[in-house]
């Protein structure tokens, strides 16, 4: 299986390549991608250097252009596709069908992958994208169980990439606008969920409150570690109980089901976290590359040191198999 690792800047890309990533995926420094964070991402020159660095070592670079352009921004998105083609990206990862048509018509040599933001969860949906835009690969939303992923792969006209590790979206990617409900900005429109610009940490004598767009997402006692107020990972009240009603702060980790993912025909494993530090990129890439090598050699067993290393860089220091495991649902 191909290991697809994230990078938010050139040093991170080099670290990913040097530590065993088969592919690095990146984005440009604006709202054309779903990790639109201040100080993050690539301009054309840096992206070109990244592609050259990877290609010189036999690795690939994919460019995520996976938000949804509105009329006022259309050209920014088509410029991003032109730029990706110009610097020799191995694929662009798209969600919007208008952009897919643009890429197909203007850059027929450019490989198109369907982004997780395209929310395709069945082979019928994949068939539509394949027939109409000749996509080569699709990234599945983190909502299917292993048995369901298997079914999709058995009938899919294109290669399937799945998320293996990183922050967990509890909602179907591309179909969640909780963030814009509270802030006006969502992954689809702006390329960010629960954007830092709308976050407040308010401390008083008793507790620390975290707010998003003014909405109280959580509050912590003095001794409790406070988390980032991602909307779906707050504590809310229903039927008299206050708890993580939607999801706990936790990360996805599929090391334990890696042999199964290979067996059902998953083509590539994606690691989340373009916004994370170079230290994160080094740890995840190294760990996952070692696990995949072990898998290729046969006799796979998850090593406790791998899980330990990954837990340390996980949200809330805990991990889950997410929707792959039916009981999570």
């Amino acid at each position: 299986m191909e290991l697809v690792c994230p990078a938010g800047n050139l040093p991170a890309l080099k670290i990913a390549v040097d530590n065993g990533a088969d592919t690095v995926y990146i984005g440009f420094g604006d709202d054309t991608n779903a990790r639109h964070f201040a100080g993050l991402n690539f301009n054309e020159d840096r992206a070109k250097q990244g592609v050259e660095y990877a290609h010189a070592r036999g690795r690939k670079v994919y460019i995520a252009i996976n938000t949804y352009p509105q009329p006022s921004g259309w050209q920014r998105w088509t410029d991003a596709i032109d730029r990706a083609a110009r610097i020799g990206a191995d694929a662009v990862i798209l969600a919007d069908i208008g952009l897919m048509a643009y890429a197909k018509n203007n850059h027929p040599e450019l490989n198109l992958h369907l982004s997780v933001q395209g929310s395709a969860t069945s082979y019928e949906a994949l068939d539509f994208y394949c027939q109409n835009f000749y996509i080569k690969r699709a990234v599945l939303p983190r909502v299917l169980s292993v048995a369901q992923v298997k079914k999709v792969i058995e009938n899919s006209p294109v290669e399937i990439e799945v998320f293996g590790f990183g922050s967990l979206c509890v909602m179907v990617e591309g179909r969640c606008i909780l963030s814009s409900y509270a802030t006006g900005r969502s992954p689809n429109t702006y390329g960010a969920c629960s954007p830092a610009s709308h976050v407040e940490y308010i401390e008083n004598d008793i507790q620390l409150e975290t707010r998003l767009g003014g909405v109280l997402i959580d509050s912590y006692e003095k001794h409790e570690p406070a988390g980032y107020p991602t909307l779906c990972k707050g504590r809310f009240e229903t039927m008299g109980n206050t708890y993580y009603a939607l999801e706990e702060p936790t990360s996805l980790n599929t090391l334990d089901i890696l042999p199964e993912l290979k067996k059902i025909g998953v083509k590539a494993i994606k690691i989340e976290g373009r916004q994370r530090s170079p230290a994160y990129i080094r740890t995840v890439t190294k760990t996952w590359s070692e696990a995949l090598k072990q898998l290729d050699r046969g006799h796979y067993q998850t090593k406790s040191e791998w899980n330990r290393a990954l837990s340390e860089i996980s949200e809330g220091f805990q991990t889950t198999l997410g929707a792959y495991h039916r009981s999570w649902q």
């Binding site: 909780l178 939607l246 649902q329």
Partner: peptide, 21 residues
């Protein structure tokens, strides 16, 4: 009411401490 999100997880079942199945 605005439809805001969809998930694999059933939040109503979760509120009752039940499995989705």
């Amino acid at each position: 009411k605005l439809p805001l999100a969809f998930s694999a997880r059933c939040f109503t079942a979760r509120a009752y401490n039940l499995d989705k199945d």
